[in-house]
Design a protein around this nucleic acid. Sequence first.
DNA 1: ATTAGTGCAAACAATTTGCAACGAT
DNA 2: ATCGTTGCAAATTGTTTGCACTAAT
Lengths: 134, 134
Amino acid sequence: MNTKEILSQKGLRPTIQRIKVYEYLLTHRTHPDVENIYNDLKKEIPTISRTTIYNTLKELVKNGLVLEIPTEYKLCFDGYMQNHSHFICEVCGKIFDLNLDLKFKENKISDHIIKSFCVMFKGICINCQRKEKK
Amino acid sequence: MNTKEILSQKGLRPTIQRIKVYEYLLTHRTHPDVENIYNDLKKEIPTISRTTIYNTLKELVKNGLVLEIPTEYKLCFDGYMQNHSHFICEVCGKIFDLNLDLKFKENKISDHIIKSFCVMFKGICINCQRKEKK
DNA sequence: ATTAGTGCAAACAATTTGCAACGAT
DNA sequence: ATCGTTGCAAATTGTTTGCACTAAT
């Protein structure tokens, strides 16, 4: 099933803007923020607006196609929906995927219903370690 | 050691504002945001400003006395520094402490140096479950 | 006395809203 | 023809900055 069909299936009209935003997130595993997406897509669709990026991301998140990652530095988005964790560098703020297969079996804690969980590791990324050595 | 002494030890002048912000976070395990802290402290210190709350929180976080918790709903703060995890309700946005003792022994993954990690569970809290039943 | 910290107002950044025009069904 | 979506401009919210005044050492 392609992106267009996935959007339709979720009840979202597959407009060029939505298809491009969604495909951008599927092909760029960089955890971009609104501004990153806007600047890059503007090259392909010069008339695209920030408002549409905001609207689209909201719909994609609501429909479980995209993940929202709030960080101390900025608000990022992730189109990779497989179970994985994140590492955030406290120097450059960049987020990296970690393919640790962490499991948690319970679906309730202290009477709260658990639907999902995510792990955020924090430290200094390999790139910033190298820079700091100088 | 009291809050005043802890601040001094960190090189932060123990002003009334700083002491009160810090003590607020130690005594209110509610994960407040800037506005919550500002509104509550204004009752005690009517002249306190938002700027000072911002400045103080930044210093407390930088000195490892307070934790910053960015969420999809708002930016929260936590003065409880013992190892614990959080649960966030996707209906009301409230954060709850979970005293799960999760461990992760490695201090490096994919060459990134790990300094800390935190786990965020997501779902529907006990209060919102009750409300939704109606 | 010195220097750090406070609090105001203004500036800035990020996000949301209102609405007219557009486009897919 | 209808109704959802887009994109602009304006409004709103959250946060930072510049600076004179104040308070802690």
